[in-house]
Every structure is written in C-alpha cells, then in structure tokens.
Design a protein around this nucleic acid. Structure first.
Lengths: 219, 219
DNA sequence: ACCTGAACACCGTTCAAGT
DNA sequence: ACCTGAACACCGTTCAAGT
C-alpha cells in the first residue's frame, strides 16, 4: 500500500488503537487489517505480541531526555522525571495498561528512567535496598496515580461526559449506609478533567514521602 | 462429582490457578475442566468472565474487617488498612493482576475499603478533591508496591530461585555505560524475599507522604 | 434450578511457500 | 528481506435443549 510497513508505523498504529479503544482492542489481526496487510506480516517485525507491546512501551517512554546532572539537587531532578511520566500518562490513555502488562526489564527506555531514578535516590543518601524499593515505589506510584486520572476515549468527548455521568449515578445509587462517604463524594470522585491537581498535589504527594524519609536519614 | 458447583468453589479454584500460574492461566475452559464440568456450567454462576474476576477480587479483599473507630487516630487506622492490603497482596501472587484488571467499582469489598479510607482522610482535614486523590494514591500505591515484591510461583520454590538468578544475570549483562546503576545494583534489585522491608519501610513511605501533606494543612 | 452439546466468531502462532 | 495462505490450538459466548 502507501509506504512501507515499518516497526515504528506498526507501533504508532497500535498506540492509536489503544488510546482510542483500550489496549484489549489492540490485536494482531485487527492491527494487520488496519495496516492493509496480512496478520503474519507483523511476525516479521515482531517475534510475538508480547514484543509488540514492549515496542509500544518503549515508544511511549522514549525521548524523555533525562540528563543526570550532578550539580542540581536530586529532589528537583526526581520531580522533573516524575512530572514527565505523569504528563505522558495523561496524554496516552492506554499507557497505564501498556506499562502494567509489559515486562519492564524488556523496555530499554524504561530501564533508562529506572537507572536515572536509582542514581538520584542513591545520591540522596538511601541504602541500596531502600533505593530499590523507593524507585519501584515512585515509578509504579506515578503510573498508578496518573493512570487513575484518565478515562478511555471510547467515543470522543461527548461519550466521555456521558460515561462520567453514568459512573456518578452508579456511585450515588449505592446503599448509603454501607458506603456513606462514596455516596456523599460521588461528584468529586468522578471529576477527572482536573489535570492541575494531579500535576501539583499528586506529584507533591509522591515526592514528599521520599523527602520525609530522606530527612530522617539526615536527622 | 464430589460436592456441588458453587460460586465460592469456582472463585477459590480460580485463585489457586492464578496464584500458581498467573492470571492469564485462569480461563473459563481450563477452570471448567479442573472442576470436572462443562465450560457453559460456569455461565450459570457468573454472567461472564469479567464477573468471575470481580468475584476473585471480592474474595481477596473480603473479611478485612475494617472498623472505623472515631477514637483512634486516623494515621494509625490508615496504616492498619494499608498493612492488611499489603500482606494480602503478598500472600496471593495473582492479587495485583486481579485488582488491576477488574473494574473496582464492581467489587463491594473494595468499595468498603475505599469508603473507609475516604472517611479517614476527610477526618485528617483534607478537602474533598484532595481526599479523592489521596485515597486513590494510597490504595493504588499499596497494590503497586506490594505487587512488586511478588514473583509468580510457577514451579515451586526451586523454580523461583532459578528465576531470580536468571533475572539477575540479565541485569548484570546489560551494557554498563548506559545502565550503570542497574548493573551495579543487580543483586539488591532482584532480592525480593525481603518481606520485612516492605511491611515497615514500604508502608512508612506510602504514609509519610500523606502525613507530611497533612502537616502542611495544620501549619 | 442447574447443567450439557453444538456452534460461532474471535484469538495468537507455526510452517511452508511465494517474490 | 519481506510478505502470503492455509492450518492449528486455543479463547469467550450464545442458544436451544436436556434433567
């Protein structure tokens, strides 16, 4: 057809489908059909479906351009790293699912982020085992937190609004004596467009845990 | 066969398979076969596979027995809640996958936990929107953190040890100039048996973030 | 109420073959 | 090197039918 079937083109198409309809809609056969090609053609470029998802993850994280800088404070750099992760996760509705499904050890770009985060926490004065736990905490935490702020854009913005309304109604019609807070807070629970809160309060929340643990080290 | 095919029996068998071989091994057909029954028999007890996974999630969280107690400090109660979540997640290797796949709104036991957490953060003085974000952060964070401390027990403890060794070798054989910290920390990165660190330092990490944000409210 | 049998529409993947 | 065709073993699910 038009142009060549390249690895990158496949991955980008997969991300489009995933962002629009959820990762479960990304299927070898569906992907092949949309690319005007036979399903088996994809097996030339990817060993199997798992490697395709690895490719998607790598494409999402690639280009974060983290430059470890010994002169800047570690908090600042860690915050920047987390901020980029969070923003990417909100741009791509399927990113959370991709990063959960994938074996992160197979994703070069993720390993780079991880390595940078490790370097920063070690510099903060944490021990080896604590640093491992902290980096896992912060990366997974960022994914979980930012992922929660995203609804799959199944059918454009109007479908999204409808989806929110439906969810709210379901919360409100729960038995109020067993779920008093959820029923009462149905509105704020379903408000998600609120990107600002995630970028400030959310990232603060993630990092302040680490910072207060670091303060205990110094004290 | 022996005994009746009950909803609970199906869910428990599904959890056994999931813990032993991973959630992707939990299949309607496989489950039916192990229960000595036709695949379609399961559709009498569950509307579809999604509802089966909901049942698994509910069974995992059920019986947490969270009793909101106005006289105890919120930090303490929140810590207890998170501790129970973390311990359950380590007992059940497939719990993380189950809780990620499922729509948590459909899981009554999870809604109870969520409601309790909401009540506690509201009592701590956070606003409605902040409380929603914090409870999402702490529940998702606990899942992510504890889930990371678990390897699927594919083939007993000896297979597990072999799996860890293999992972370590893969870390060590990465290019050291692009992943210096990961290569250097290959050993602590792959040590996971270390339950104690997760139960103490890990939970501290999660909660100290919230506590320091709460301190800013008072200050 | 509880379960079976046969069928449908979908998967991922292999393997030999084409150009 | 890059793609196709046919086939295999597996899914979840429906629907009519049995007891």
């Amino acid at each position: 057809m038009m142009g060549k079937l390249t690895r990158e083109a496949v991955v980008e198409r997969a991300l489009e489908i995933g962002d629009a309809e959820g990762l479960q809609a990304v299927t070898i056969r569906r992907l092949a059909q949309e690319l005007g090609v036979t399903p088996m053609a994809l097996y030339w470029h990817f060993k199997n479906k798992e490697q395709l998802v690895v490719g998607m993850a790598d494409h999402l994280i690639e280009g974060f351009e983290i430059t470890p800088d010994g002169s800047r404070p570690w908090r600042e750099q860690l915050r920047e790293l987390v901020g980029r992760l969070v923003r990417m996760l909100r741009r791509h509705p399927c990113a959370e699912a991709v990063l959960e499904e994938v074996d992160k050890m197979e994703v070069p770009a993720f390993l780079r982020v991880w390595d940078t985060a490790l370097g920063l926490t070690l510099r903060a004065g944490f021990g080896a085992r604590e640093s491992c736990l902290i980096t896992r905490y912060i990366l997974q935490g960022a994914i979980a937190l930012a992922g929660g702020s995203v609804e799959h854009r199944r059918c454009g913005p109007e479908g999204h609004a409808e989806h929110v309304r439906l969810k709210r109604v379901r919360f409100q019609s729960l038995p109020p004596d067993t779920y008093p807070n959820i029923v009462r807070m149905a509105v704020p629970l379903t408000e998600r467009g609120d990107a600002e809160l995630y970028d400030t309060f959310g990232v603060d929340l993630l990092l302040s845990g680490i910072e207060s643990m670091a303060a205990r080290l110094d004290g």
